[in-house]
Design a protein around this nucleic acid. Structure first.
Lengths: 197, 197
DNA sequence: GCCACTTACATACGTGGCGTATGTCGAGAC
DNA sequence: GTCTCGACATACGCCACGTATGTAAGTGGC
């Protein structure tokens, strides 16, 4: 009568990830007590260690979930754009805007690198970086942008956009800083286009 | 007969900062035990709490010291260059190379932001960012580079260079990745120059 | 030159959080 | 129906941080 076994397991995993995601996203990784948020999810640390091994393992799982969501959102953005170039710009803008969301910023861009090392080395959680690189490759093949090293450029733009997001997020006046940062970033992207002349 | 008071105090502060710097730079902030490295410096946690308030305060002091050193190094690099543009490129290259040094990378670029928040908001430790922005402003005034928002561009380039450094540092083959990353970065900078045409 | 006071540290203690070892209960295999 | 295994809970030890308290040395006023 009770639900199938696998389903219940998936449910507890999901509950733990959701609780951890909330805790990590609000008070941060280091300040999150595993006892606290497992209790909030109606479980104990036992379940947690059983499924994820340790606190870092849980963080990995949370990041993997976040990355998957972010990648899906980015793909949606670029699919909706009227041109490759527009899609590219929109994608990066969306990326910056996502990095402004407190949960993503804290977990993916701050605590994640500090605890797990640099993002570019994460095994199952760099879907959005891949998505952005793919767009760049298409534009290069398409002749829209100048001949640059895809890998390097994608990573540099990635770093610039993350930093832009941090700048906005920590600004006294996020509204105007956002305009300034996104404007500057678009200007930078514009330099990559092949000159009409 | 004993040394002047203030001198002894400065000495203990220096010893604590040096010990913490080493510990933070090697095992990382979170894994550094204050008991351990204070003992290594011939002191106890009492001295530490007296001078720095808490562990974060000590990290701040360490970062401030590192930033001062980095700023001095950057200024030396740009002063030595034969032209403003060359100085600019050299400065950013030097910045990337500094971010490759394990101590700086770990403390300033990884643990620092995670514990103290984004670098751009640090009160007494953004000398090198200021130095880089100054170079950019000079180039703009000089007409060497196109008209961009100084503040925004400096921050974006800053983010890109940090990310480049992380990429190199975490690469399987740092040597070749370094060439790729620095090359890509220079190509990006090149786009900012006013076209000869 | 003595005394009150402050300052720079050391020592002792409580608390809390992580990880692990152990226990238990229910579900499926046969 | 028993047996086994896996999903979780419980209990324990350890370590690290922060704080409260102690102490000895230095400093200023008279």
């Amino acid at each position: 009568m009770s639900k199938p076994r696998l389903e219940m397991i998936a449910e507890t995993r999901a509950k733990l990830i959701a609780a951890a995601r909330h805790a990590f996203g609000t008070v941060g990784y280091a300040e999150s007590s595993m006892d606290d948020f497992t209790a909030g999810a109606g479980l104990t640390r036992g379940a947690l260690y059983h499924h994820f091994g340790d606190k870092k393992g849980l963080l990995q799982a949370v990041i993997q979930e976040l990355d998957a969501e972010m990648t899906a959102r980015l793909n949606k953005v670029s699919a909706k754009a009227p041109s490759l170039w527009q899609g590219f710009v929109d994608e990066y803008t969306a990326y910056i805007e996502m990095a402004l969301e407190p949960e993503i910023q804290r977990i993916v861009f701050r605590d994640g690198p500090a605890v797990l090392g640099d993002m570019s080395q994460w095994p199952n959680a760099n879907g959005c970086i891949a998505a952005l690189r793919k767009s760049l490759a298409e534009l290069k093949a398409d002749g829209t942008i100048i001949d640059v090293d895809e890998e390097a450029t994608a990573r540099l733009l990635n770093g610039a956009s993350i930093h832009a997001a941090m700048w906005i997020a920590n600004s006294d006046d996020p509204q105007s800083t956002s305009i300034q940062a996104v404007g500057g970033f678009r200007a930078l992207l514009e330099q990559l286009r092949v000159r009409a002349n």
